[in-house]
């Protein structure tokens, strides 16, 4: 009788541990930890520097991709020399499908006054940041919801998804 009770208690314990593990796993999301790496491009136009930002409590892939995109567009805090997206550039949406993140930026992104140099550094940092996330290999840029060949008066080709090997 005592043996039976011990077995029942043991079975309940194993079940509880299993359920607890499943719940914990679901809550923490699949592969993203509590921090992500965000990149910025130094003023040499070539060197990408990662810094670590802490995620909030939303860790699902879509939230993380949005968070990462906003951080990359914001760039590092002032005081760090970086090639920066124009002030006021807003991330309107980020959607991920088939390992491509589609990032919709506001019109302000086109306001930097036409320099191939800045364009390149900005988008390189954004692409590096997003492709550092699990299961994202390419980034499709949109502006105000539309795919564009380049920024107005710009140079960098944006109508195809950008990857790390675009550079």
């Amino acid at each position: 009788m005592r043996a039976l009770r011990a077995i029942v208690i043991l079975a309940l314990l194993i079940f509880a541990v299993f359920v607890g593990y499943r719940l914990a796993k679901r809550a923490s999301g699949p592969t993203v930890g509590s921090t992500i790496q965000v990149y910025y491009c130094k003023l040499d136009g070539q060197t990408l520097v990662p810094w670590t930002v802490t995620l909030g409590s939303a860790r699902d892939p879509k939230s993380v991709a949005f968070y990462a995109a906003v951080q990359a567009v914001a760039g590092p805090p002032s005081g760090t020399d970086a090639i920066r997206f124009p002030a006021g550039t807003v991330v309107r949406a980020v959607n991920v499908s088939d390992s491509t993140a589609t990032v919709d930026l506001s019109q302000a992104v086109a306001s930097s006054g036409g320099g191939s140099f800045a364009e390149s550094g900005e988008f390189k940092a954004l692409v590096w940041t997003l492709t550092a996330l699990p299961d994202i290999h390419a980034v499709q840029i949109r502006i105000e919801g539309r795919t564009v060949p380049t920024l107005p008066g710009g140079h960098l080709e944006l109508d195809e998804p950008l990857t790390r090997s675009s550079w």
């Binding site: 909030g56 906003v70 914001a74 590092p76 920066r84 550039t89 807003v90 309107r92």
Partner: peptide, 24 residues
């Protein structure tokens, strides 16, 4: 500037000195 997408769990305001202010 404020970045938010309907359905998103983050709403993030970027300050003039480029700090991201994150609301969840």
């Amino acid at each position: 500037a404020l970045s938010y997408q309907p359905g998103q769990r983050y709403a993030i305001v970027t300050s003039a000195d480029r700090r991201a202010v994150t609301f969840t």
